[in-house]
Design a binder for these strands. Structure first.
Lengths: 168, 168
DNA sequence: TTTGAAAACATTCGGGA
DNA sequence: TCCCGAATGTTTTCAAA
């Protein structure tokens, strides 16, 4: 039961378009039972959604970079994520411990575009930036290991937080 | 035509389980025409696959960290990504410019697990580590902006490279 | 949780712009 | 080359037990 949910999640993390029929075969349940479980996982927020994995090269966004940012005036209220959310080049925004405040992952078409985005980041959030260019990506966004360990903690329902995501 | 492909990609990046029927309505084409286009995008490698977006908190992996690594002996052949690929806690591995060689994103259940993974990374790849803990994630893995700019470059077919991913 | 039937959907094909 | 519409098999969905 608990283990079945983990199997479902692992299967859907690896192939988000699996049919309920295939899923049912893999976990050894009827189609409707699997369907119901998936729906419960979606409602509980364990499965937050589904996405096509797209090639950034093919979309002409071959240049990725990590941008660490630090406020120019640390006494100001810190709403950098909100101020930056409208920039479509920003893939991810992490609040981090350490000398920097946030770590951004940006995707652009060219060095010139990176330059422009960095300027936009600095002016929009009143921050300094320190940029690390990604040269290649051996692997990325691998499906998480789903422990089928019998001693593993239960899958947890989440507090109703429909906006933000990982790593609290 | 070209713009239609971008609309399809944008729709599937936001909702990877959209039916072809829904997709067809959105882009104003017949179901079979959309189906054909999606298949071509998949074959060309523009769409690399589909994945469920899972909540790492719900999976009891609430702690994320960026781990910058540097070889102890820079004259040795550098195969750190291969040496680390078996560690399921590593979500992503980026080769980066700058003082560090690689930047890893790891996901674990607790500080103790992070400690263990860092040791495993150091011994498996013969590297030093510098770790930045993620405190929260305002947003992550947002769908890329798909330029419908008429002057935008064509969607590119990819050389047959079925393994690696972004940012060359 | 299962079964079973109805509705919706995916997939392939032939033909037309 | 790209599109559409129809035919078929599959999947999803729902009710009932």
């Amino acid at each position: 039961m608990e283990e079945t949910d983990r199997a479902i999640i692992a299967a859907l993390a690896a192939d988000g378009r699996l049919s309920y029929t295939d899923l049912a075969e893999r976990v050894g349940l009827s189609v409707s039972a699997v369907h119901q479980r998936v729906r419960r996982l979606e409602q509980r927020g364990v499965i937050k959604g589904y996405a096509a994995r797209v090639s950034f090269e093919a979309l002409d966004l071959p240049l990725s970079a990590f941008v660490a940012i630090r406020p120019l005036d640390p006494s100001q209220p810190d709403d950098a994520p909100d101020r930056l959310a409208h920039l479509p080049e920003i893939d991810s925004c992490y609040s981090v411990a350490g000398e920097d405040f946030y770590l951004l992952l940006v995707r652009v078409a060219s060095p010139v575009d990176l330059e422009r985005v960095l300027q936009e980041i600095r002016t929009a959030a009143n921050v300094t930036t320190r940029t690390t260019v990604v040269l290649s990506t051996p692997y990325e966004s691998r499906p998480p290991k789903i422990s089928s360990d019998p001693a593993a903690p239960r899958l947890r329902a989440l507090p109703p937080d429909p906006a933000s995501s990982s790593a609290g």
